[in-house]
Structures are given as C-alpha cells and as structure tokens.
Write a protein that binds this DNA or RNA. Structure first.
Length: 580
RNA sequence: GGCCCCAUCGUCUAGCCUGGUCCAGGACACCAGGUUCUCAUCCUGGGAACAUGGGUUCGAAUCCCAUUGGGGUCACCA
C-alpha cells in the first residue's frame, strides 16, 4: 500500500520521432518540480496515432531522457547504464495509451449517456469541403452539430451506434461543447478566458476507435493522479477543452503552468520540420543555380523516389529521411533540433540541461561577486525550481551560447574525467584516434592538451588530427615548411636537427621534460622575447611542423609526450629527410 | 482572418507583483588590450536595451489604456 504522492507531474510525448529540445525542457521542469516537492514524475507515452507511433521512437525518447539524467518514478520500465527507471508504484498503468483504450471507452460511454458526447456520421471529405467553404467566406468554421440533432437523445445515439457497429460502419465521437465561458487558471499566465461559444464540438474518439489527444490526456491525468501540468504555451489553446472535459466527467482540474516557447533565431517555433526546411531551401537554391539538376536526378542520386522528392520540394511532406539524405548529398549540416543531435555532436548532458533550464526560467540568485548565478546542475534545479520564476516571453535558442556553456562544462571537468568521457566519445566518433593513442598516461596527456581546445567532444578531434596520421605519412603544408623550416637559410631545419639530438638524449619522456629540453635549448641559444624572457617559439615551430605538417598544434610538451618517443623520432627524421 | 499569448542590450535574462537605491545589472556574442611556444584557454576593459503614444503619480522599466510589432493556435496529429 503506497500513499498517494501530493505532487505528480508528467511528461507525455508522442513516440513519433526523437526527443525534441523543447520536450526535453518540459520534461526537465516537470522532473525538477516533482523532485523539489518530493513527488512523482510520470512518463506517459501518447501513442494513439497508430500510423505515426513506433516503439522505436518511444525507446529513443526514453534513452534521451535517461541520458539527460531525467528519471521517472512512474512509467515504462527502462534500464539505463544498469539502473532501472520507471515502474508502477501506484498501480495506475499501463503507461502506453494504446493499451488503455478500454478505460477511455468507459468514460466515453459515461459522456454519451449523459448526452455530452455523440457519434457523428459525416465523412471527412464532407467536413473538409465545409471547412474550405468557410475559409473562403472568411468565416470561422465550426462543426454544425448535424449528427447531434439527427439523433437527439442518448438512447437514439446508442441505437444508431449499435446499428453502425453491426454493419462495420466507422464514425468518430464528438464532445458537446458547453455554452459557457471557460477560464483557464494558469500559474504563469494568470486567468485566460475563453468566451462562451468559442469552443466547437471537437472529436474525442477517432473512427479507428482510439481516443484523440484531448480525451486521453484528461482521462490519464485524472486516473494517474497528475496534480501539475507543465507544458509549452502551444498547448494553451487546448486547455479550455481539457477543462471542459474535466468538468463534464466530474474530474478535478490540475494546476496548469504553460511555459514560453523555444524558438529559432528567426522567432518561429523550433520544430523538427526545420531540418526539412533547411534541406529544401538548399535543394531549391541548387536547382535554381544549376538548371541541369532535376528532382529525378537528385532523387536517383540519393535514393528517393522522384514523386516523393517532388512532394518534398513542394513542402507536401517533411520527410526527415529525405532531409538527411539531402544534407549528406549537399554536404550541409542540418540544424540540431533533437537531443540526440546534440549528443552525437559531443554536447554534455549537464550543459544542455543548464542551458535549457535558462530558457524561460532562472533561479534569480546572485553569486558572491554580485553576478547572476546561471551555471548549475540538475541537483540544484531539483532544489530550487519554482513555477513563479517561469517567464512569459518566448526564448530564441541561441546555439552559440549553448556552445559556450558546453565549452565551459568541458573546461570544468578534471583532466581525468575529460579523458574518460572523451575516449568514450571518440571510440564511436573517431575510432582511429583511440587506436593510435593507448589508454593510460599517453591518452591523459593528449586529453589534457585537447580539453581547452574543445567546445564539444567532437570539436576536440580536429586539434588531435596529427595523431591520426601515420608516423610516416605526415603531409607537410608548403607554407608552414617555408615559414618555419626553410626561411632565413634553413634556420628551422638546423634547429630541428639539434632538437632531435636533445630529445634523443632525454632521460624521461614526459611533457615537463620535453618542454624543459626545448626551453633549455632556447635559453642556450639566447632566444629571448622583447621583454628579455626566454622565447621557445623559434625552437618549437620547426618541431610543430615536423610532427604535424602544420604550424598549429596543441602545446608541444603534451603533444610529443602523447605521441610517444618512437613516433616523434620517426616524424622528425622523416621531416629532415623529406624537406632537407 | 477568428481566438489566445507576449514585448528590457544582437541573443538569454535580472529588475516589474510590493513605483524612487536603475542616466537599468549579469551572461553569450562582438570590439580593444594583456598572459601564452603556434592555436586555444585564461585575465582586464569597452560599446550595446526599458517598442510607440497617452494616462495615474511629486516620481514609471515598474501600475492602467491604446497603438504597433512578434508569436502561438484553429485536424478523426499530439
């Protein structure tokens, strides 16, 4: 026997794709609110759209949530890194709506018997035509309740439904909207009033027998004991329907808090479709520029049917697959929209959570130096999250700031921690690097050198590029060779020969020893900068070119140490031979 | 178009509820210096905003109204 939690929040995604950053923020806030009040956070999968839902998506969403560190107390059971998440402590499951149809039908019958819901027998085409006519006449379309009046009593409706069921005829069921003002009491926005007659008789059960979102949400929030609904403002206009339904069913109304939207930099709502938009734009521009390019041609090249691609171009579909193929074909980066996009690109969950939490919320606290507190983790959020600090203004998703947060998060890690996380990342993203540099001390040296050069884990791969070259395959950049080796009568080459000797004689092969050797050489040669301090630059530059082929590398101490004595010797000798 | 929401630096925002301490603070970005073996990191400094118009008030970024602007939503999707 478990006691009912005083606070139950929920995140209820539909499994039709990956977890979107906006969804992640909703989940994060709901999670934080539940944690703060010692309540439960519930995950419910809204899979009533049979055509678009998939188990794979549901798993992907759970994986992304778990990766972010957002765990749910109630919901589908899921194992992440050996830890079990979810379960049904209150016995209110299942948590997939498709498995709760009997429950919805029970409440649906109640509404029909009360005369608050009724079957409708118009075809979709019929309604579509009426809708179009209304739009053409610049009028707001509302369902005319023809079916309601055709069968004026609950008994007549029930009889008609029985008749239809016997014949295999399908039909949706509509809710008889109340003729009174509905007030949504929102914790963020205040009272939002919807005048009597604004609501139309919306469908609550589709012809396929599944409930619509509105109906399922209301039944589930009630039966799962949800006390606080926090979701994005795009849902605000749905809320009066939910309130009306709650009233008709005799349910309590949870506390609502609608959060500001997360937008693109152009202020439009950030959505998965933005990937398709970017791909479409690129394709259209390419086709305008190159008349030889055709839908058929490109389609064949990327493996998409001509018709499919033509529809895509005409914006009649927003296929993610097509968008991704086009992105690869034109070598353009599609915008990062979903949590997995950021994950694949080497963002840290902590940075994402922190950044997302600051979109529409802030702790309103100052640091000791008087600056605003804005760096915090989910533990902090769980202790300090409060609805009254949720803002009303929609926020633009500034990837540059997120990148900065991520870089700071990386810099804030210990060298050991970064080495571990980065190695794990590279083992998927760039296995060659992991193969070339053994785990242990050498990898740690490399990681230490890379850490301040990586805004993302993926970012770190580029400055480590020299490690991926074979010791006998360094490609020398002509400009770098000229400037650092051949200029001034081959001064650099001469220096490199001496460096080789000094490094060969080094007793211990560590960053400190290597740097010390280079510094000593500079000192002995009297190399000083304009302030009179030893200037290692002229010694370092030729070595840099020898081991990387370019004039830019991470600091040489760590770089050479991580490369290994043998590799460094080979590279320097080869450089002397090739460029000598 | 109907309905709904919103309005502080380029962006995220503090301040607004409980008017004066705000010629508006922080962060990202940008610019200029500095540290540094290259590239980064790091440090210091700088420019940059209360949408407009009316009220209320001794006093308005803060309260009220209008205008303008932006966004959301109008499915048998969620």
């Amino acid at each position: 026997m478990t006691t009912k939690p005083a606070v139950v929040t929920r995140f209820a995604p539909s499994p039709t794709g990956h977890l979107h950053v906006g969804g992640a923020r909703s989940a994060l806030f709901c999670w934080a609110y539940a944690r703060k009040h010692g309540g439960h956070f519930t995950l419910r999968i809204e899979d009533t759209d049979q055509a678009r839902s998939s188990d794979e998506s549901a798993r992907g969403i759970m994986e992304d949530l778990a990766w972010l560190g957002i765990d749910w107390d109630e919901g589908p059971e899921f194992v992440h890194e050996g830890k079990k998440i979810g379960g049904d402590p209150q016995g209110v499951g299942p948590f997939f709506q498709a498995r709760r149809v009997a429950l919805y039908n029970k409440y649906l019958m109640q509404l029909i018997e009360q005369g608050r819901a009724y079957p409708a027998f118009e075809s979709s085409e019929e309604l579509e035509a009426k809708r179009k006519a209304a739009v053409a006449a610049k009028q707001t379309y509302r369902y005319d309740r023809a079916s309601y009046h055709a069968y004026p009593t609950p008994e007549a409706r029930l009889a008609r439904m029985k008749e239809a069921d016997a014949k295999g005829e399908t039909y949706p069921i509509r809710f008889y909207a109340p003729a009174e003002e509905v007030v949504v009491q929102d914790e963020v926005l205040g009272d939002v009033k919807y005048a009597a007659g604004e609501m139309d008789d919306f469908v609550i059960r589709k012809a396929d027998g599944f409930p619509t979102y509105h109906f399922a949400v209301v039944v589930d929030d009630e039966t799962m004991g949800v006390t606080h609904v926090m979701r994005a403002q795009e849902h605000l206009n749905n809320t009066p329907r939910h309130v009306a339904l709650q009233k008709a069913l005799g349910f309590r109304t949870p506390v609502y808090a609608h959060m500001p939207l997360i937008c693109n930099m152009d202020a439009s709502k950030m959505s998965k479709r933005d990937k398709a938009k970017v791909a479409r734009k690129t394709l259209k521009e390419a086709m305008a520029k190159d008349k030889a390019l055709s839908a058929a041609g490109v389609g064949a090249a990327i493996g998409v049917a001509t018709k499919e691609l033509e529809d895509f171009i005409a914006a009649e579909n927003d296929s993610l697959v097509t968008a991704q193929k086009l992105g690869a074909y034109f070598k353009i980066a599609l915008p990062e929209i979903e949590v997995c996009d950021f994950r694949e690109n080497g963002y840290l969950p902590g940075a994402i959570n922190n950044f997302l939490a600051l979109l529409g919320w802030n702790p309103g606290m100052k640091l000791a130096d008087g600056k605003d507190l804005e760096k915090f983790d989910t533990k902090f959020l769980a202790e300090h999250f409060a609805i009254d600090r949720i803002g009303k203004t929609s926020a633009k998703f500034d990837r540059v700031k997120l990148l900065s947060f991520n870089g700071d998060a990386i810099n804030g890690m210990s060298d050991e921690e970064f080495a571990r996380v980065w190695r794990e990342f590279c083992s998927h993203a760039e296995p060659r690097l992991v193969e070339r540099v053994p785990e242990g001390q050498r990898w740690l040296w490399l990681a230490k050198a890379i850490k301040p050069r990586a805004k993302t884990l993926r970012d770190g791969i580029k400055p480590a590029g020299l490690f991926m070259m074979g010791d006998d395959a360094v490609e020398f950049d002509a400009g770098a060779v000229e400037k650092n080796l051949k200029a001034e009568g081959g001064k650099g080459m001469e220096m490199l020969r001496e460096v080789l000797v000094r490094l060969q004689g080094l007793a211990e092969w560590t960053p400190g020893a290597i740097h010390g050797a280079l510094e000593l050489m500079a000192k002995e040669r009297g190399l000083v900068n304009d302030k009179g301090a030893v200037n290692v630059g002229p010694v370092a530059a030729p070595v840099r070119v020898a081991v990387s082929g370019s004039g830019v590398t991470p600091p040489l101490g760590e770089t050479l140490a991580a490369l290994g004595r043998e590799g460094v010797m080979k590279r320097v000798e080869r450089c002397l031979a090739v460029n000598g």
